[in-house]
Design a protein around this nucleic acid. Structure first.
Lengths: 193, 193
DNA sequence: CCCAAGTGAGACATGGATGTCTCATCAGAT
DNA sequence: ATCTGATGAGACATCCATGTCTCACTTGGG
């Protein structure tokens, strides 16, 4: 495995480190680098070899999570077909990045640099546009703003990731639970469409 | 204002300190005690006079947030009337404690002592019971588990608090947005009940 | 007016996380 | 078998948040 290309080659190990780091830091932001390393199953030295320091780790987390989630948004093809279906695809595509998302959403909303904020703004705009499209096409209600629906989606993705991680929801039900709740609410309806 | 009673007297200042600390720490758990103090508008020394240290502050945050939220649950009278109405009352009553909630939900889910976990377990059970009651009475759908609906409620409360704090949602719409989304979803229905 | 209580600002020592280093070990390739 | 590269386990030094202290100042009550 010599001379890998220079471009963004995400080694499996590096990726797994990031994932377990996100899982830990998302609800324990004060965790030690030592704890992060142990959670990832590597030594502290190895962790430092991949990420210069704590800042670099958080940066990498942001970068990776943002990339992965945006890829999910791409794959969901939000502009195609009925808005409800597009929303379902989005939730489904975001399953792998849900733990990363949970970290990004909860931890680092306030203090970040422009690059990250721009990345979020772009994604926000795309998702918000989906809700607006649905409203204009008459399939989404207009008394809930697109901005709120976007935030609510993030909240539900986080809650879902947490529920799966703690075993309260089966992984296979993740997409269904979120999509159904977001689209239809929890009220039972006699007349289903 | 001499000799205050010994019992749980929550000075206004102390309470405001806790609220601003929650608002800051909920998305910046690594914030310095100095930053927390500045955010609360007091000196670091004063902050230390009220809370022995960082641990004590977090403990107080947990305790205060848990108490306040449980009081909201009490005030909502979850056992009375239609389940949908009870849920609406719960969201409404939890408005003041939403920022505290957001902190409790995101930060400290993993590492805590038994006392806090028991507090959460009790609240979880009460809210979950509400959803179960609604399901048994036929007004809530049964294909979304009560456990998931409970977690989803937490997620939406957090998302709502965040949306209000960042100005994306008007404070007066907070209860409506959450309740409506949770009960009815975002799909527009021609036949409304 | 004066005293008591509380406060903000700052100085200071301490501890623990952080970052860098070395070295023995191990897996894979040749 | 041998060599190369990466790893884990530690041993350090450094740094910074933390916690404690003092002191001057303000405020409100007597």
């Amino acid at each position: 495995m010599s001379h890998l290309g220079y471009g963004r080659v995400m080694t499996v190990d590096r990726e797994q480190m990031l994932r377990s780091a996100a899982a830990l830091l998302s609800r324990r932001a004060t965790a030690t680098m030592d704890e992060v390393a142990k959670a990832a199953g590597v030594g502290r030295a190895t962790l430092h070899r991949h990420f210069a320091g704590r800042d670099a780790l958080v940066r990498a987390l942001e970068d990776f999570g943002l990339r992965e989630f945006e890829a999910a948004v791409d794959a969901a093809r939000l502009e195609e077909g009925p808005a409800g279906g597009a929303l379902g695809r989005l939730v489904g595509e975001s399953v792998p990045s849900a733990p990363l998302l949970a970290f990004l959403i909860t931890e680092n909303q306030l203090f970040e640099g422009e690059e990250v904020n721009q990345g979020w703004a772009r994604i926000d705009a795309r998702i918000s546009a989906l809700f607006q499209r649905g409203q204009q096409e008459g399939v989404f209600r207009i008394d809930l703003t697109a901005a709120w629906l976007t935030e609510a989606l993030y909240g539900l993705l986080s809650a879902g990731a947490w529920s799966v991680q703690t075993g309260r929801v089966a992984p296979k039900d993740y997409q269904f639970m979120i999509t159904e709740l977001l689209l239809g609410g929890c009220t039972r309806r006699s007349v289903e469409r």
